[in-house]
């Protein structure tokens, strides 16, 4: 018979081991990523941030892909934030329980659709439609990618924003209504500000999804390694970091592999920055509700 305190110790030890192990694995991924990227950084330096990409001339400017990743993700937000926030407000504040019980799982189901399916629909249906109807330059464009990524980011934005708004205490909403505020005034003045950290982190998660998305984007964006001209032309084609890695990986060797790893480092950095911002927002609101300023 083991004593209770040593049992506790063993359990603590096991969980400590598990936690350490997962952290170790992640650290090794970091290390590996950076170490494989390093030769390229050493050789090309800031050249990696230039606009020129040519395998023949050994120029590996990743900027068009970096720009494309951010551009397409920001564009996707213009689709997913208004739609997502609107749907979340409806779900959490307006819909009856029954409607909510049907809609919420359906929306979450959307998140489970494989991204290649979105990409396929985007390329075959949307791209084709845009090309035929609006006389576009080609089937592929940032615009089509933004629409598809916007829809792909919807479930995460709706679901997390809905949770955030649901978690604003009913006390507070009641207080507002009892003071003669209308439902809409209450949503605008109490519910949304109260849930703003959750909503912002939902938006950031959605953006992370858009930046990290590969398959769908690869099929629609055009995979052309140059800047759109002019740089804000959403109907031009381009590239993203993820698509670049996927497209080039199979036929690359030597230093190009290291360049692709650098693209990975860039992606990793963007996503890390976003999750730090999301963390800061969370803590801020928590402090607000605890009475600190």
């Amino acid at each position: 018979m083991i004593s209770r305190s040593s049992k506790d110790k063993i359990i603590r030890f096991i969980f400590f081991g598990i936690a350490t192990f997962s952290i170790l694995i992640i650290s090794f991924i970091f290390l590996f990523l950076f170490s494989r990227a390093y030769p390229a950084i050493e050789e090309f330096g800031t050249g990696l941030l230039s606009n020129d990409w040519s395998v023949a001339r050994r120029e590996f400017g990743l900027f068009p892909a970096l720009y494309g990743s951010v551009f397409v993700a920001v564009g996707a937000l213009f689709v997913s934030v208004p739609l997502g926030l609107g749907a979340a407000i409806y779900l959490s504040e307006i819909a009856s329980n029954r409607v909510r019980m049907i809609l919420k799982p359906m929306i979450e189901l959307l998140a489970g659709i494989p991204s290649i399916v979105y990409g396929f629909i985007g390329a075959i249906l949307l791209g084709r439609f845009l090309y035929d109807t609006y006389n576009m330059r080609g089937v592929n464009s940032f615009f089509a990618a933004m629409l598809v990524l916007g829809v792909m980011a919807l479930p995460i934005i709706i679901s997390l924003s809905d949770d955030a708004m649901k978690s604003v205490p009913k006390d507070m909403k009641d207080a507002s209504l009892a003071l003669g505020a209308t439902k809409w005034q209450t949503i605008r003045n109490v519910t949304i500000p109260g849930a703003i950290s959750g909503i912002s982190s939902a938006v950031i998660m959605g953006m992370g999804r858009a930046i990290g998305e590969t398959m769908a984007v690869m099929l629609i964006i055009g995979s052309v390694m140059r800047m759109p001209v002019p740089f804000f032309d959403i109907f031009d084609t381009g590239h993203t970091l993820t698509a670049l890695i996927a497209v080039q990986m199979g036929e690359s060797h030597g230093i190009i592999i290291n360049v692709l790893f650098t693209a990975g480092v860039m992606l990793f950095t963007i996503v890390a920055i976003m999750s730090i911002i999301s963390d800061i927002l969370q803590t801020r609101t928590k402090q607000k509700y605890e009475g600190k300023r």
Partner: peptide, 26 residues
Amino acid sequence: VGMVFQKPNPFPFSIEDNVFYGCEVN
């Protein structure tokens, strides 16, 4: 018909904004 609840439920705003909220929304 104003109401005061069981648990104090001020908004996470400043004191003055709390007091003025009803005037503002109305």
